[in-house]
Simulated scan of single mutants.
Amino acid sequence: MTVHFQNSRRLWLASLAAVAGSRILPRLSASLHIPAPAQYQDNGDGTVTDTISGLTWQQTDAGEMTLEAAQQYAEQLQLGGYTDWRLPHPMELFCIMDHRLHGPAMNTRWFPATAARYWWTETARPDSREKYWQVNTGGGIGAHAKSEAIGAGGENPVHTRCVRGPSPWGAGPRLQKNTDGTVTDQVTGLVWQQQLNSQAMTWEQAQEYCRELSLAGQSDWRLPTIRELRSISDDRLAQPSLNPDFFSGADSVPCWSGTTQMNRPERAWYTDFTSGLVTYRDKTERMQVLAVRGSNPLTAEPT
């Protein structure tokens, strides 16, 4: 009887997960000790669906082009039976990068390697409209002048990969300031330390600081993944890009993530909240810290 009940419960929860969608499935899978599904699904028509975000991606990028050509290409693209393709939001594109990999930092099982060094996004830097955010093959994000693309007379091979579907990072209120010294991101559910730590520290010291932090009655604080940390950089803002309406002491400073650079373990990734730049430094250098707790498949490191 007990075995029959457990099997029935397992089947019921699995069915519930299928109905509720991919955002609940990882939590159910963990509680049932069954494997979560692969993050990507090859649709067999030149597209790949991210089963976590629900976004559908152009599988092979469209090659090097200027920003204006990329925008026109996206408007005219017909692929997989759809015509509503667009250039991606910076976080959409950043979240298909895999920082466990290098050269490129992207899973080529789903996204074939090309000659790309950068990919266009839809978003300009707010304090310099000639610069658009690009994600690079190494796994970073930077705002580069449109004129740096090869097609515009520059030297950078900037390629185009289109996406379709409602964006989890779209417009609308996301952050909620709590009364206990924390901020909740209502998209990811992550809870953030509200006060930016003002003392610069090494990566190891930052890890220890988070482990020892007791805040809002909780002690399970940690350094954020690089996806998590970049997710709170507001692309509508600059100097700082960390919204001071929600984060006390927000400043144009770099903050450590807990993500180690795959091919250089003495380095770790960070976000510079001057603008939202993502790159890496030696772990012995000193930067600020913003602790987080909770988890969400959207911003978790791939497994």
Rank of each mutant, 00 (worst) to 15 (best):
F5A: 15
A18R: 14
V19W: 12
L25Q: 11
A30N: 08
P35S: 08
Q39F: 04
N43H: 01
T51G: 03
I52R: 14
G54Q: 02
L55V: 10
Q59W: 03
T60M: 06
D61E: 04
E64I: 15
A69V: 10
A70F: 07
A74F: 02
Q76N: 06
Q78N: 13
D84M: 13
D84E: 11
L87Y: 06
M91C: 04
H99E: 07
R100G: 14
N107C: 15
W110T: 01
P112V: 04
R117I: 07
T121Y: 05
T121G: 02
S128G: 11
E130Q: 13
W133R: 09
T137M: 13
I141T: 07
S147R: 15
P157S: 12
N178D: 09
N178T: 07
T182H: 06
T184W: 00
D185F: 08
V187D: 08
Q193I: 06
N197D: 03
S198E: 08
E204G: 10
C210M: 05
L215N: 04
S219Y: 00
T225P: 00
A238M: 01
A238I: 01
N243R: 04
S252H: 08
V253M: 14
P254V: 04
P254H: 11
S275I: 08
T284A: 09
E285Y: 13
R286M: 13
R293D: 06
N296G: 03
L298T: 10
T303L: 15
